[in-house]
Design a protein around this nucleic acid. Structure first.
Length: 290
DNA sequence: GTACAGGCAGTAT
DNA sequence: ATACTGCCTGTA
């Protein structure tokens, strides 16, 4: 799909924001509206040309969010040597990884444990309504994503009223770590994969999968390879020969690390892109509506 | 009623 | 290191 700025690049923003990496996007009256940290983002597509807005104004945010600075031709060329991924690339050529706000990404995936996407969306909308700041856009109310500070001072009963259940404790733990300075997310962008992951794993409620999602979607670790049940299914059906043992849907932490590392060696430094093509391909062929 | 959904931590072995 | 278990909540 051709976009307004820069016109020479091709990608599909609709597919990308609906590929399960991010949760607070919705289609309203012909345009897509999304929350990224303290910004309300908007785009509309017609006749293969996209227009982008943000509130408050932030020039060319789409370049940052959709990772247009990545050499996608190179990514697709490298990953396309794998026949399975080549099929997915051909099917969804416009799919892109997103570069999300790290704090929002952290809280989003803390909420994502052991539940489904409609529930995740509900939790995050409720949290934003209760702890975010109201912004009026196009005559409609939106809410910025809550800051760590606001979530840190939230009471447990307030969090429970957002429907987060037992994740309340994890939300509080992450909010406290950030507020106290024990977890410095921006600094992790420059750290190595393992170093950054170790920092995230110290947080209560953050395990292997959630840590890898945060690393890939918000901290520049394009070689992070998150394995959820969908990826596990895909690995066991397409890549069983790479692994001597059967891949079950439930992986022990050790098995997770082993397989994740093996896929990293197989796909190289863009392993995270391969994961996203696989994930979206699996979800799509399973006809998940979200 | 009960199974299930994009995991994780706690405990026992 | 692995196996097993409980867990908030809403929907089918």
């Amino acid at each position: 799909m051709l976009v307004g700025r820069p016109a020479s690049l091709e990608f599909d923003p609709v597919t990308s924001v609906n590929s399960g990496q991010t949760f607070l996007w919705e289609f309203i009256d012909g345009a897509w509206y999304g929350i990224d940290g303290r910004n309300v983002l908007k785009f509309a597509v017609s006749d293969g040309v996209a227009q982008f807005w943000s509130y408050p104004e932030r020039g060319s945010w789409e370049r940052n969010l959709f990772r247009l600075d990545d050499n996608i031709a190179r990514v697709q060329a490298v990953l396309g040597r794998d026949p399975t991924i080549a099929t997915f690339i051909a099917k969804y050529p416009g799919l892109r990884l997103l570069r999300q706000d790290p704090e929002q990404c952290l809280f989003s995936f803390v909420c994502a444990s052991n539940t489904n996407i409609p529930m995740i969306r509900r939790m995050l909308y409720n949290l934003s309504r209760m702890f975010g700041d109201k912004i009026a856009v196009d005559g409609r109310e939106f809410f910025t994503f809550p800051t760590a500070k606001s979530l840190n001072s939230a009471s447990v009963s307030e969090l429970l009223s957002c429907g987060v259940g037992y994740r309340a404790r994890a939300i509080k733990a992450a909010a406290k770590a950030i507020t106290d300075g024990d977890l410095n997310l921006p600094a992790l962008r420059k750290a190595g994969l393992q170093e950054a992951k170790d920092q995230l794993l110290r947080i209560y409620g953050v395990g292997n999968k959630i840590a890898d999602c945060i690393l890939l979607f918000s901290l520049e670790k394009l070689d992070a390879f998150p394995i959820d049940v969908w990826i596990a299914r895909s690995l066991s059906s397409h890549y069983s020969t790479l692994h001597e043992c059967r891949i079950s849907e439930k992986l022990t932490p050790r098995q997770y690390e082993l397989i994740s590392e093996k896929m990293r060696r197989h796909f190289g430094k863009y392993a995270g892109y391969a994961q996203q093509y696989m994930y979206y391909g699996m979800r799509h062929s399973a006809r998940k509506p979200w």
